[in-house]
Write a protein that binds this DNA or RNA. Structure first.
Lengths: 108, 108
DNA sequence: AGAATAGTTAAGTTACTGCTTGACTATTAC
DNA sequence: GTAATAGTCAAGCAGTAACTTAACTATTCT
């Protein structure tokens, strides 16, 4: 709709998050990096399907992967989640937004 | 996947947010309540299509609507955004989560 | 070398999304 | 009362999403 620089990213991120399987993967990855096969194991699904989900998560910059030898290791990448959070936070009430800015000041 | 009480809601919310048109509607609604026709006006789209989007947003508890006479007024409902924010915040780093709790204490 | 492991790629299937059109209902305006 | 307004409902359609299977490529193990 608005192919603004950011808009497309937000699209990808929310679309990636809209799937329960992918959210389960992120949850798993929040406990540390794992290989694609390890990711696939608890989900009753083909490896091929999992690979496709991983690609979606990568394009949304929610995970980053690196292949060493024959195993591809996936780890969480905060960029995507941050984009989502920024969008949501921009739609808070003015009072909540003031609190957000306070947190920003306290943080660094 | 996990039809946990919350899981289904999260699904609906992120799916609703994954569409640029619906996000534009939310943006419009964040400036105050409007009728369905008013919502439809800036988007180059049939009224019927807009109604369908409104239904998606309602099911995600992102908007609440009420019909008076022949006009249905839509207003933002924070429940859905809060659900999304809760999910995202649960996946922050421990350090960030500490800051979140601090904000919670300061808030009320 | 041969067999098992880990992943990739392409193609096909089924189901769901985002729209449109068209017919219809309820209000409000003239 | 008639006409315009505001919305609703039901099909239908093109495009996309989430899989599957099957054939293939690279590693690693024995």
């Amino acid at each position: 709709m608005h192919p603004q620089p950011e808009e497309n990213d937000v699209d990808r991120v929310f679309h990636a998050l809209a799937d329960a399987t992918r959210r389960a993967m992120l949850e798993r990855l929040s406990q540390g990096p794992v290989s694609v096969s390890q990711l696939a194991e608890p989900l009753g699904m083909t490896l091929a399907a999992v690979v496709q989900h991983v690609q979606v998560l990568e394009q949304a910059r929610l995970v980053h992967t690196e292949k060493v030898g024959r195993v591809r290791t996936c780890r969480l990448e905060p960029a995507g989640l941050d984009a989502a959070r920024r969008w949501l936070d921009a739609r808070r009430t003015p009072w909540e937004q003031a609190l957000d800015r306070l947190a920003q000041v306290v943080k660094p």
